[in-house]
Design a protein around this nucleic acid. Sequence first.
DNA 1: GGGTTTATTGAGCGATCACTCAAGTATATA
DNA 2: TATATACTTGAGTGATCGCTCAATAAACCC
Lengths: 192, 192
Amino acid sequence: MTMPRKPAYDRDALIAQARDIFWRHGWAGTSLKDLERELKLKPGSFYAAFGSKDALYALAMERYAQDGVANMMTLARELGPLGALKAQPRLVVEASELPTRACMLSKTYAELQARGHELAGQARTHMVAMKTCFADLFRRAQKAGEIGTEHDPDRLAARYQSDLLGLRMSAERDDVNASEIAADIAADLDRL
Amino acid sequence: MTMPRKPAYDRDALIAQARDIFWRHGWAGTSLKDLERELKLKPGSFYAAFGSKDALYALAMERYAQDGVANMMTLARELGPLGALKAQPRLVVEASELPTRACMLSKTYAELQARGHELAGQARTHMVAMKTCFADLFRRAQKAGEIGTEHDPDRLAARYQSDLLGLRMSAERDDVNASEIAADIAADLDRL
DNA sequence: GGGTTTATTGAGCGATCACTCAAGTATATA
DNA sequence: TATATACTTGAGTGATCGCTCAATAAACCC
């Protein structure tokens, strides 16, 4: 029994790179030629590593969603549940290193849902997880007395996620002052 | 001088039909085969009538945007400026005949902006017009004393449009109670 | 009805799509 | 060093993309 050769690439780094490309250009907007050029992989290596364009897209979305939840958790540890929820809108708008401000999950869902594509269902699943994360933060904010208990945390989370999706879409437009919208969303949380 | 043959199709009806197809499936998600099948046009007739896929898409978006503004104006005539703004979220969620709840302009912008496609710029232009329409309604609501004058109508319009985009995206998901979000958006307008 | 003009038809264009695979190369163990 | 194993390469697959155009059919004025 002899041991084989190792791949020359860093699989995790390639997934992160693919995530940024898919995030910016979407599913149909990203061709294998694009991926091969950016990831510096020939078709053979690409398919040996990931199996298909859709399989890599699924990995990219999973990475995106995991990072999103982890980011909110970290933020909550630093600023508390309400602080994290209030800070997130501003952080999204101000983040300059993002491939694009719009949410990758909502972009994927919007693009592929009508055709019943499997990736749309996966995007939906990840959005549900994100919403659950928001709901937990609202619940914790209530228990900590940061906001009143008269509102349903699940409903607050749905509204918050919806506002965030709109904000992130709006932040892509140069005719919109997204900072103002972010501030207004945060201000609404103080009135709870 | 003799007179020519007339087309067998209703151009306006075809544009409306194309709008619904593009709206639902997006730009890349709609092939000429799809359009030829649905509009019952052979390639030759299609190109004689519209010139290109992108040209028809532009016409479809224009129709979408015109109808959107006209709809808000009609609503304002019936319910007053604040009444129209408050009613719109619920109407969007409850409308059952729509090809999809998400906004066609934001879908187009999200899909094509990164590649610098001309249609993304046109979508942006139409969204600006829609935002201006909202701002006018907020201004009229202020003049009518329906809401306070301490807020900037342009800022209110940007936030309102952002909320509406998020709502319409959320209304596509069956894990979200969009009616509740719509009610919450309308309720926020009463606190102005 | 004749003649003119335009609408309709559908085969097929080159380009690009996601993807395959046989041949060549590099790295591990023995 | 010999060999087994897996990685890398890139030409090439059939399918589909948006689109063209020559041939045919239909509707109009005279």
